[in-house]
């Protein structure tokens, strides 16, 4: 089994993946086999003037995740996730968390090796 973190607009497996990593509404910490999950609130980053992506990477690392699934990860968060040896799957906005996990399990999610786009503080 693998513990993966998926950014989520809501609080259930059937809610959509949040396209933003740093300022994601919630993180779902999902057991990729049993689909048991736990919700981590990420609203604290909404009032951060800077470093939301880094803060989120820290949250994900502390949750003990092996991989993160989201829309896109900015350059600083990317560096931080890399440092913590966490796999990054991007481009999953628009689908549900359940679908994102299924794709990850099926090996259909590409694990990125560089940031998805230039960003600044978001």
């Amino acid at each position: 089994m693998a513990k993966i973190v998926v950014t989520c607009q809501g609080q259930s497996l059937d809610d959509k993946v949040d396209p933003r990593f740093g300022r994601a509404a919630n993180f779902l910490v999902v057991d990729s086999e049993t689909l048991e999950f736990q919700v981590l609130d990420n609203s604290a980053t909404n009032s951060m003037a800077q470093g939301a992506g880094i803060q989120s990477a820290q949250t994900v690392a502390n949750a003990g995740a092996e991989a993160v699934l989201t829309g896109f990860v900015g350059p600083k968060a990317f560096q931080a996730l890399n440092a913590a040896n966490i796999k990054i799957g991007q481009g999953l906005e628009g689908v549900t968390v359940r679908e994102a996990v299924a794709r990850f399990n099926a090996g259909e999610v590409e694990i990125a090796s560089k940031p998805s786009r230039e960003g600044h503080w978001r």
């Binding site: 230039e118 503080w121 978001r122």
Partner: peptide
Amino acid sequence: GCPVISSLSG
């Protein structure tokens, strides 16, 4: 500076 960088990125 910062505000214009934030208004332009992406």
